[in-house]
Structure formats: C-alpha cells, structure tokens
Design a protein around this nucleic acid. Structure first.
Lengths: 226, 226
DNA sequence: CGCATTCTTGATAGATATCAACCTCCGTGG
DNA sequence: CCACGGAGGTTGATATCTATCAAGAATGCG
C-alpha cells in the first residue's frame, strides 16, 4: 500500500521532481480512499484539511456563485492533484467544492503535514512552487479565454481537446458542459445543434465525432485549452 | 541601502513572516531602481529574470489579448510584490506585461536567487507558498466576478473600493478603467454617466464622490473586490 | 491658440441569458 | 410488458447586456 502510494506520488506532476525521501514521507502520511460517483469530497468554505491525488476516476472542482450558476475550475483525472493550492491557503479554507464524477480511488494527504514537509524540503518546495506557478498561468489563460472568446470558440476548443479514442466522445450533460464553458445548458444545446447542422460534428445519442476539424480550429482561433 | 531594502521586504505581505536571516539575504541580492512614468518593466513572454517590490509609485500588470483588448491583472502599489508568481514559473517566462503608471521606485530581486533561497528556507517557503495560495484565491474571485457580474456591479464595486481620502477619487482614463473592469472605454463612460444622472456619484473633472453608497452597494451586490 | 488625446453620445449589431413549453429517453414498478 | 414519471434535451420568443463604429465635444498641453 505504501509502495502504491509512493508510485502514484512519483507519477504526479505536482510532486514529480521531489526528492525520493520526500515521496516516502508523503506516502507514509497518505491514505487511499474510495468514493462512489456523486460523492462530495469537500465543499467551498470548509477547512482545508486534506489534499487529494487521484489514482483512478474523475473529480470535478467547481464554484457555485450567488445566482446559482456553476463554474467548473478543473477536472481531476488520474495522477492529478486536487486542492493542492487550497491546502496552503491562509486560514486553509477550500475556495471551491469538489465532487466525484465517477467512482474514484484517491489518495488523501493531510494538509498540515504536507505543508510542514514542503516547507522543510527544498526539493519538495521547488516541486510545489513550480506546480503553483503553472496553475497560476493556466488560470490566467482560462480567465482570458472565458472573458474574451465567444462561446463558439470555447465550445470548438473544448471539442478539439477531447481525446477522440476510437469512435466518438461521449458528451457529459449539457449542464456539466455549461459549467465547463461558463454558460448555461440551453446555449450548449443550441451551439451543438449549429455545429451539427453545419456538419462540423457528427452527433448521435450524445456521442460526438469531429467531421470538419478545420472549421472547428477556425472557430477556436487558437491553440486548445481545457 | 541594505537596511532600506530589508525594511521594505519586512513590510511586504509576501515576505512578511519570513525569517530575519532570509530577509537579510534577500536584501543583499536586491537593487533599487527608479522608473519614470510610462516605462516598461517587463513584457509578456520575456524570460522572468527578476521580481519586484514597489517602494513608491504604481505598476500595472496586464495581459493584451489577440484582439487588442487589455485586461489589468493587478495594480502594484507600495509594498506589493510584482511578478512574484511568474518568477517561479516553469521556464520562467513572464505571463503578463508590466508598466509604471507613475514615477516608481522599486526593489528588483534576481529571480533565480530568490527561487534558490526560497527552496532552502522553511520560513521563506512558507511565506511564499501562503502568498501564492492567497493570490490564487484572489484570482478565482476576480474571475468569477468578471464572468458572472455585470458591468454595473463591477463598476460600483470598484468605486466603493477606492479609499476616499478627503474629497474625491481622481479617475484614471476610461481606457485604464476599462482594462480593470474587463470592458471597453465607451461603456465606462456610459455607466459613469448613468451613475451621475441617478445621483449615485458626484462627478466633476474626473473627480468622483460617492453620493449614494447604498445604491452602489445594491448594484455591487457583494463585498468589494478590486 | 491650436493640436492631440480623451471623452461623450447615438445608432446599431451581436452575443448571451431567461422563460416557458414541449419532447425524448430511460428506468421503474405495477 | 406496458404505463408512468422524471431528468435531461430542444426550441422559440424575448430581454438584456455588451461591443462597435462614427461623429462631435471637451480637455489639457505645449
């Protein structure tokens, strides 16, 4: 179990370059946990007691705003760290909520312990600081995208970024897509319909295939994000 | 000079809780620099060789997007750190540009040296990590605000957040305000006009006074940001 | 005083959000 | 096996907000 935890830690982008002894110390503090689909991992505003590394499954981190709209900040799949920044926040309060979108197996690390270890180990501090800086840059890019590109561009970019394994990408619900793209379900439905009618995509039973990649790239107008 | 640098470092939010010996080491690496108003400090995409601590004056950090719109990410006044996150970015590339909005006196710290020091000193690592986490949370709040509140709310919040020292807040140009609020100059002009006509604010020669704080708070619909 | 920048304002276009109605699909239980 | 119910999807009508373009007015600086 400890070996498995160490293995997962070594694979993660956040801890990748940390020293081996740090990895082992982290692994000793870690606990595997299984979550059924739909389970809440943490809620915005709660004390940030843990951070999480996904082994298998998928987590969604999102913020719910006052008027009921939801914005998905990140999807955490295998090897991804969730609540990494939150665990270092002053006051250590989660600034978003997290739910399992699928049955998920994850490694939970106690936030306070990780903080102490990180402060003391140069290699770990380097890994974590670099990870934070990257997340910051990603967030800036995302913000700019949400602010300055229109929904056609965001949806096109999202579709292009899906790994089209075999035949088609199974769409999440329109609500979920809307939360990812920063809009509402109705507009997702409309835009998907438009793309379909213009033969940019094939669409059958919530399974999408890209038919005209050039057109989508033109709409996206930039390198992929999401 | 070294004492002055150390003093400034101790006052900054980012390095505040660091150990005294770290402060002295940082101070030894630091150089004061004076910039005339309008001077470019760095440009997006350049190698991030330095980070900056403002002693007096004002810096603007902003991103210019493909279609020519500008978004101001932060204003760095006295005691504030600029490019702190960028200096730790993988590849160490500035992810935004920075200009002096006023004549500015700042302390320049060599990024590579700061990184090394930060990795090695637990107290400094803690200060910097905490600072990063706070910036991350701030950025999330800003993003949500730009996405989900309308311009009335953003402008009202901005006005409420100004320190109304004595009689009135001297507005920056409409372009500058637009970059702060994520919109275009014309709309800033219109909204300011509306607020004035409804007697929410007094407006004379680019100097604003709040006349109806309640109305502005209602528009803002939340605690201040900006 | 004249020039250049910025500000203001109207007209208009376009994108996004909202509300409501209806439809489709799918699983469940009678 | 079929009927039912509910969640999610689609679509139209409409409102609102934001952006754009262009012209003229105000302002400040040399």
């Amino acid at each position: 179990m400890l070996q498995r935890a160490a293995h997962l830690l070594r694979l993660s982008a956040a801890f990748q370059v940390a020293h081996e002894s740090d990895v082992l110390e982290l692994a000793a503090l870690a606990q595997f946990r299984t979550l059924p689909k739909g389970e809440v991992v943490f809620n915005q505003g709660e004390p940030a007691s843990s951070l999480f590394l996904v082994e298998t499954g998928l987590l969604r981190v999102s913020r719910l705003n006052a008027s009921g709209r939801e914005l998905t900040l990140m999807l955490g799949g295998p090897r991804q760290l969730v609540a990494g920044v939150g665990a270092f926040a002053p006051g250590a309060i989660y600034s978003a909520s997290c739910v399992a979108l699928e049955d998920t197996l994850l490694l939970a690390l106690e936030a306070a312990a990780v903080r102490q270890l990180t402060y003391r180990s140069p290699a770990l501090a380097e890994a974590v600081l670099t990870y934070f800086a990257r997340r910051h840059a990603d967030l800036l890019a995302r913000m700019e995208d949400l602010l300055f590109s229109d929904l056609n561009a965001r949806l096109a970019a999202h579709l292009l970024d899906q790994p089209f394994s075999g035949n088609g990408y199974a769409l999440p619900t329109n609500s979920d897509l809307a939360a990812l793209l920063g809009t509402v379900p109705e507009l997702v439905s409309r835009k998907l319909g438009e793309f379909y009618r213009q033969n940019y995509i094939g669409l059958h039973r919530r399974s999408v295939q890209i038919l005209d990649e050039g057109a989508l790239r033109r709409l996206a107008g930039r390198q992929g994000l999401y």
